[in-house]
Design a protein around this nucleic acid. Structure first.
Lengths: 231, 231
DNA sequence: GCCCGTCAAGAGCAGTGCTCTCTATTTTGA
DNA sequence: TCAAAATAGAGAGCACTGCTCTTGACGGGC
């Protein structure tokens, strides 16, 4: 039994090392990850890798899952590390944490938010981790609402939009007004766009002060949402 | 001479057919385009393809260029087909045209706006076509400004942001206030985010009425920019 | 001491981009 | 008109990929 567990431990360490090497390759070669190259780096022959990893796609899925968790952790840590009543501060911190994580792990970000691989379908267990960043953002708005620090936008939503967003709200933030959720979604969409533009080179030769630009654009969305400015 | 031109014409037609077949493959297999598969579809042996196309990357570049032009044409046509004084209408039509094009050409959209291939560097001649959509959007704001239908946002921009945006404005829209350009960029970022989320499956199981959702989100950004609502 | 599960290696299959060579055809120029 | 030149296509081949199957070595449990 202890012998079996020592075997299991070595095995787990091997899988961890394979993932680490794969992550390293990801950074240089992008999503076209080569199992043979990983095997070479580990001093194995290519077929031996299949003792630990069922297939290339499964390895990619594992990396994707870990990446989602890394981003989710970073984002939630940034949120819980800020004064809960400082809505605008929380919004900014969360957005900044997402960007920082993306800049630190560009290949993983591209894996998560880049163009999907046609043949590859994201397994069901990636759905929840993928929702952590937007849920964190909308959670800020929910908190502001329950503490009366946020006013609900006055406008009426078109009926189909209201219906979709009400259903979405019921699943995660029961009672949240759909008009506010709509603005939260706009903020999340914008955050994704900002990071993607920066990482995918769309800001090259135009925006040189990336930090300031990012903060300002995030602030614009905070205005749209109605997050109170510090007096 | 006419004999030479008949050869040249056949040759051009072959290249066109190669591109068409490649585009078809793109839709099913994504960016990992196989020249051999294209050759097979054309009843050629793989090496014969290289008579017409220097390399796989060059073929991809050609497809990218044509895609940028297709999107640019669609966007600009939507803009010039709308009453120039109806700023908000123009904004909506341009955004809708971009989305419609993306929905009609999902693989090409992913090629343009998905994660960049690590080894592949976009050639210089893709830069200008790539700027057509954002320039069209900002052009609407410029028109609104020159006709006094748009008020410049009052706030001061942080100096680094102001500097970057002023330089950008000078290159394409001399005299445009950087605060307004900042909001235009926000709108363009949002448009990209909206389309990407929809095309890359982020809206699955949450938003079922995609058209209404898109219009509403675009409207939110129009509000942020200050585009006058129809009375 | 034997047995069985685990691990690694090697060969092999089908696919990829790309190059080189050879042949057939077509175009061009004297 | 007829030879020379340009062009198109085919085939073989190289190095690479994911993945499977078989073979042999090792080690812990009975």
């Amino acid at each position: 039994m202890s012998a079996s567990s020592i075997r299991a431990r070595v095995r787990a360490e091997m899988i961890d090392e394979i993932k680490a090497v794969a992550r390293r390759h990801l950074a240089t070669d992008g999503a076209n990850l080569s199992l043979r190259a990983v095997a070479r780096d580990m001093g194995m022959v290519s077929s031996a890798i299949y003792r630990y990893v069922p297939s290339r796609d499964d390895l990619l899925t594992a990396l994707i899952l870990e990446a989602y968790d890394g981003l989710g952790d970073a984002v939630e840590a940034a949120d819980s590390g800020t004064d809960p009543d400082d809505l605008r501060g929380r919004w900014h911190h969360v957005c900044r944490a997402a960007r920082d994580w993306a800049l630190a792990h560009p290949a993983e970000y591209a894996l998560l938010y880049g163009s999907p691989v046609p043949g590859y379908a994201a397994p069901a267990d990636t759905v929840l981790p993928a929702q952590r960043p937007p849920l964190t953002l909308v959670g800020i708005l929910r908190d502001g609402l329950t503490h009366g620090r946020l006013t609900v936008p006055a406008e009426e939503l078109p009926e189909p939009v209201r219906a979709d967003l009400t259903e979405l709200a019921d699943a995660f933030f029961p009672g949240m007004p759909s008009a506010l959720l709509a603005r939260g979604m706009a903020g999340w969409t914008q955050l994704f766009g900002l990071i993607s533009f920066e990482l995918f080179g769309r800001l090259n030769q135009t925006i040189s002060h990336r930090d300031s630009y990012f903060e300002h654009q995030v602030g614009l969305m905070a205005d749209l949402i109605g997050l109170p400015r510090p007096e």
